[in-house]
C-alpha cells in the first residue's frame, strides 16, 4: 500500500511543474497581500458607515454589504473582468482580481469590524461621553483599540487570508493536472505549499492576538504619548 502511494507520486515530474506552482503561489501571496491591505482599510470605513447616524451612509453601506454577501464571489470577479470592459473600463487580470476580491472581503471584514465595535461594553461609551469626548474621539481612543482585539480573534477563526491563496493555487494546479493527470502529485505539492504559507500566517495572527490582549503592553501607549 505504502509502495503504491510512493510510486503514485511522480518525483521527477514534480520538478517540472514545481516552478509553475510556485509562481501560482507567489501570485496568490501578492494578491492576498494587496486584497488584505485594501479590505482592512475599506472594511473599517464600511463598518463605520453602517454604524454612523446619517441615513444616507447607513443605507449605502448596508446595501453594499448585502449585495456583495448575497452574490457569489466568482460572479463579482467575472463581472469586473468581462462585463465592465463593455463600458470601457478595462483591467488586467491581476488588477481585476485585486478589485474583485477587495470588494468581496471588504464587505465580510466590515461585518467583523462591526461585531468588534458592538462588543465594546456600553459603560465604556458612557464613560467616554461623560468625560466630554466627541463621538470621533471616543471611536478613535476608546472603542477601536478595544474592538481590534475582537477583530483579530474573529479574523483567526474565519482565516479569510487562506481562502484567497488556496483558490489561486488550486486553479493553477487544475490546469497542470488537466494536461498530465498527475492529480496525486500536484495536489500533494499544493497541500505542502498551502501549509507552509498558512501556518506562519496563523502563528502571526496568534502573536497579534497575544500582543492585543488588554494589559499586556508594558510600554506607555502611543495614543497617550502623542498629544492631540
Amino acid at each position: 500500500m505504502f509502495q503504491n502511494i510512493t510510486s503514485l507520486f511522480d518525483f521527477e515530474g514534480s520538478v517540472e511543474y514545481l516552478p509553475e506552482l510556485l509562481r501560482g503561489a507567489l501570485v496568490s501571496v501578492e494578491l492576498t497581500f494587496c486584497v488584505m491591505l485594501i479590505s482592512l482599510v475599506f472594511g473599517l470605513i464600511i463598518a463605520l458607515m453602517r454604524l454612523s447616524r446619517p441615513r444616507v451612509t447607513r443605507t449605502v453601506s448596508t446595501i453594499y454589504v448585502e449585495v456583495v454577501r448575497g452574490t457569489p464571489c466568482l460572479l463579482q470577479l467575472f463581472y469586473i473582468y468581462f462585463v465592465l470592459p463593455a463600458f470601457g473600463i478595462r483591467f488586467d487580470p491581476f488588477m481585476a482580481g485585486v478589485i474583485g476580491l477587495s470588494v468581496n472581503y471588504s464587505a465580510y471584514l466590515s461585518e467583523v469590524y462591526r461585531a468588534g465595535i458592538i462588543a465594546v461594553p456600553r459603560g465604556q461609551l458612557e464613560a467616554a461621553h461623560a468625560l466630554g469626548m466627541s463621538r470621533a474621539k471616543m471611536m478613535r481612543l476608546i472603542i477601536l483599540p478595544q474592538a481590534i482585539r475582537v477583530v483579530v480573534s474573529l479574523f483567526k477563526d474565519t482565516s479569510l487570508v487562506s481562502i484567497v491563496t488556496v483558490k489561486e493555487l488550486m486553479f493553477t494546479g487544475q490546469i497542470i493536472a488537466a494536461t498530465n493527470f498527475q492529480y496525486f502529485t500536484i495536489f500533494t505539492i499544493i497541500g505542502i505549499i498551502y501549509l507552509s504559507l498558512s501556518y506562519p500566517g496563523s502563528l502571526f495572527v496568534s502573536y497579534l492576538e497575544r500582543r492585543m490582549k488588554v494589559g499586556y503592553r508594558r510600554k506607555p501607549s502611543r495614543l497617550i504619548a502623542k498629544a492631540g
Binding site: 459603560g123 465604556q124 461623560a130 488588554v214 494589559g215 506607555p220 497617550i224 498629544a227
Partner: peptide
C-alpha cells in the same frame, strides 16, 4: 459634559490604558 464629572457604579475604566493614562486621556485630547 466635560464640565460635569461622573462616576459610575461599574467603574468603566478604559481597560487598554494604565491608571495614569485613564486619568490623562480626556484632558489631553479634549
Amino acid at each position: 459634559r466635560a464640565q460635569v464629572g461622573m462616576v459610575f457604579q461599574s467603574f468603566n475604566l478604559f481597560p487598554h490604558f494604565t491608571a495614569l493614562e485613564n486619568v490623562m486621556v480626556s484632558p489631553l485630547h479634549v
